[in-house]
């Protein structure tokens, strides 16, 4: 019994040291943003939730991994050593089992409460259509068809915004709430409304992905928090994330987030383009 306790204490000390080292390494990772690049309010929320889970999981990982390695180092039978068995092995240990069961339950309840419930509720609050800032959001209709993203700005009368090469472009002002109306259908071929499939609207740097289902309209409120563009960081792109047929890899569109003034200049230019194609 005494040797068990000593072994347990030694294990505990090593576990605490490893966990501390792990947390120190995690600090560095978290400072450099494990999500690489975050450019929206939802992205920041995802980043915080991610960081929190990392911090809690490091001691868990250290405990189990150390348990495995410990057995390999401390308890293994050396070559040629005679295996002598005691008459009776301990078949359970109330403390170990109790701490394990209660501990894993507590960690899981913690995760359910935070970040799962708190962040999801925060997300719901962001997505609540009746808040004042959401009611004054910039509306962009995002239409997914095989294999193209089409962006239109009904408040400005723009039906399809494009860049110099004639490719679809999503351009938005920074720090302003945007309401994205996501639909999956083909505006140019409306004879079969069931012809299209599920797509998924994803901007990697925004930390959000929402599937676009034929026959449904999904709404996404989001605030870009950084001026960014595909050229500046390729994570700033609209990318289809759900396989949707052979064109799936190329179903992407560049994203530009600009200052409010630049956005209005761009709107004027697009309006001129639409009037005189």
């Amino acid at each position: 019994m005494e040797s068990h306790r000593q072994e347990g204490i030694l294990f505990g000390v090593v576990w605490i040291i490893l966990s501390a080292l792990g947390e120190w390494a995690a600090r560095i990772v978290i400072r450099h943003n494990p999500l690489y690049y975050t450019a929206s309010n939802i992205g920041l929320m995802v980043e915080h939730a991610f960081d929190f889970i990392v911090v809690v999981l490091i001691p868990v990982f250290a405990f189990v991994a150390l348990g495995i390695v410990w057995a390999m180092i401390r308890f293994h039978v050396k070559k040629g050593q005679r295996v002598e068995l005691p008459t009776q092995w301990a078949r359970t240990n109330r403390w170990f089992v109790g701490i394990w069961v209660v501990g894993t339950a507590l960690i899981n309840i913690l995760f359910v409460l935070h970040p799962t419930t708190t962040a999801t509720e925060h997300f719901f609050a962001i997505e609540n259509p009746s808040t004042p800032q959401n009611r004054h959001a910039l509306v962009v209709d995002v239409t997914a068809r095989q294999w193209e993203w089409i962006f239109s700005y009904p408040q400005y009368g723009l039906t399809q915004t494009v860049n110099r090469n004639g490719q679809d472009l999503l351009e938005l002002p920074v720090n302003h709430v945007v309401k994205l109306e996501l639909r999956s259908y083909d505006p140019f071929h409306t004879y079969d409304q069931y012809a299209d499939v599920i797509h998924s609207f994803w901007v990697p740097s925004w930390g959000i992905k929402e599937d676009v289902i034929p026959g449904e309209t999904r709404t996404l409120y989001i605030t870009p928090t950084r001026i960014t563009s595909y050229a500046q960081n390729p994570m700033s792109r609209v990318q289809c994330a759900e396989v949707c047929g052979p064109g799936h890899p190329w179903m992407e569109a560049p994203l530009q987030v600009v200052s409010t003034a630049a956005f209005h200049r761009w709107i004027a230019q697009q309006q001129a383009l639409q009037a005189h194609p």
């Binding site: 057995a71 390999m72 308890f75 394990w100 899981n108 359910v112 799962t116």
Partner: peptide
Amino acid sequence: FAFFTEMISIPTGFAYMAAIGTMWKGRVRL
């Protein structure tokens, strides 16, 4: 669904508990 998904890790963990507890102070042949 998030709740049940997180909860399922508890019984999954029992397999680890039994394994680590069995090896503890055992005659582990690698």
